[in-house]
Amino acid sequence: MTEIENRNPDPLTKNVVLMTAVDDIINATRANSVWPLTFGLACCAIEMMATGAAKYDLDRFGSGPFRGTPRQSDLMVVAGTVTHKMAPRVKRLYDQMPEPKYVIAMGGCVIRGGPYVKHGYHVVKGVDLVIPVDVYIPGCPPRPEALLEGIFKVQKLMKREKILDRTRRTTKPEVYQPV
């Protein structure tokens, strides 16, 4: 499981001691209530559903409420294959989510096109060409345990956030603008 280094190059806010306690509390609440967006694309979505369902029970970690609307979700699990027809929608959904927002790329297809990388003319070779990704979960499809682990990684990332730090917002690469 790869995770992106938390990027906080801003020296002004990097070591603000005063805010750490507040940061800790807020980050703890955020990390323990990661609401994913109901956003399934393909096979991985079934495993995502399985993660939320009886045996694996994502709700134990506070991530139970799958929200139908991007406005109320914190985490976008891109589960399945992103195609060129779908890419503008993925981007739009990402834009509609309120900050702070996180993206998990679940499965081979969203990481680098998976089995469709060579001949899949209509497949976007990695969702990070469209939106920035925080955690990658390889697998085809990844097991529910892998998704849980991915969510833990996101929680770790969340615990490193600084609320004064606005760089997260600005450093998001504007890779792609839908036409």
Binding site: L41, A42, G80, T81, T83, K85, M86, R89, C109, P115, Y116, K118, H119, G120, Y121, H122, V123
Partner: peptide, 15 residues
């Protein structure tokens, strides 16, 4: 439809 068009038939011609 077509939001998940993953080009199965093209892939099949390449493998």
């Amino acid at each position: 439809i077509g939001y998940l068009h993953r080009c199965f038939e093209k892939c099949a011609e390449g493998n």
